[in-house]
Design a protein around this nucleic acid. Structure first.
Lengths: 197, 197
DNA sequence: ACACTGGAAACTCTACAAGGTTTTAAAGTT
DNA sequence: AACTTTAAAACCTTGTAGAGTTTCCAGTGT
């Protein structure tokens, strides 16, 4: 079962969900389709499990970053690095297929982005204010909502033209823009320390 | 028509061939399907054109490299760099889809690899021998065939497990292995100059 | 000899996309 | 204003691929 999740994730990532049929998957795993369907009820379920595991991993990683960083800007930097890593992992054809053929799963991912990540950003804003590296006047709730509303432009690519910029470029630009928007004088110098891409 | 080729290539690369339906394509281009089908007879034809253009670009790039390098090892190095760039461009889901749904096109690509690239390798071997940086005893025809037979292991990934190595890793390893296999003493030092990945 | 397990392969059924066709609507043209 | 052209948008048909199921069979244990 664990092996199944791991391997199928790998294959889906590499070749896309549609391209990996249940026949292929079972063949690859060296088991029959029958046995495969004794382990899981259907394909969607499998996808769901993979997504859930994926999200969980991200959450754990985020928790780890929160507790192991010196200040809010570094936290944000680490988060960005992590996020880029994750974006790299999810090729656009996959996100497309998820949206189209497994919308329930996709909404799960979106909920994750909107919910958990929103919370993370809020925490980061609070932390930054306490450390006096973010502007003290800023309204945490408002800014975090603005942030969250923009993040899925980055993820979704809003249509699919992006004028030749990679998702990664967009994300970097976005995060720097965000940080400059919220940093105090003291914070700005920190930004340059961490983000010299 | 040119616009069509460019844009569809882009979309196919990003989302996979199967995911971009003719409806979507025409919608994206802002034309009707009818008009689209006045420009091209069918989808396969479109794919073919894209592949042909793609191969042509590669050929031109190769010609350029041949004439603008100082010695055979540098030529090989440049070629490798180029090849990696091209490999990066073709995600595995695409090559998979080509093999499965457009085998004629794929065989075209294979012919390119086996034919034109074989020729290029031969030239490179000859050049290297003349420059005395490849071992003079080696049998050009034989080695080039061996090379060609291995290259599609790299491209095809022979099944699709590869023990966690990326296509790129495999390719680098392969090319270094190849070069060490054919270099003379003098050549070996050159290899280290160029390939310090 | 008989049950149990899981593999291979055949089978069903549905959904989706390719490739056309028809309808609508807007632009030029006389 | 009536007429023609053109293309977009909606609709239709057909083939096919793949999810999920079932059948049959071989190996293993009792």
């Amino acid at each position: 079962m664990n092996k199944l999740l791991e391997r199928s994730r790998e294959l889906f990532l590499r070749y896309g969900i549609r391209n990996i049929t249940m026949d292929k998957l079972s063949a690859d795993l060296g088991i029959s389709k029958k046995t495969l369907y004794q382990t899981i009820p259907n394909k969607s379920f499998l996808i769901e499990q993979i997504i859930k595991a994926f999200i969980k991993e991200q959450q754990e990683e985020i928790q780890l970053i929160s507790s192991n960083t010196e200040n809010a800007v570094e936290e944000m930097y680490q988060m960005t690095t992590m996020a880029i890593k994750h974006i790299r992992m999810l090729p656009p054809n996959l996100t497309y297929e998820l949206q189209k053929y497994y919308p329930e799963c996709w909404s799960h991912v979106e909920k994750h982005h909107k919910g958990f990540l929103l919370e993370v950003i809020k925490q980061n804003l609070k932390r930054g204010q306490e450390e006096q590296i973010y502007r003290e006047e800023l309204n945490i709730d408002l800014v975090s909502i603005l942030y969250a509303s923009k993040i899925d432009v980055v993820v979704k690519e809003s249509g699919y033209q992006a004028m030749g910029y990679s998702q990664e470029d967009i994300f970097k630009e976005f995060i720097l823009y965000h940080l400059h928007g919220i940093a105090s004088e003291k914070g700005r110098t920190l930004i340059h320390n961490y983000f010299n891409f």
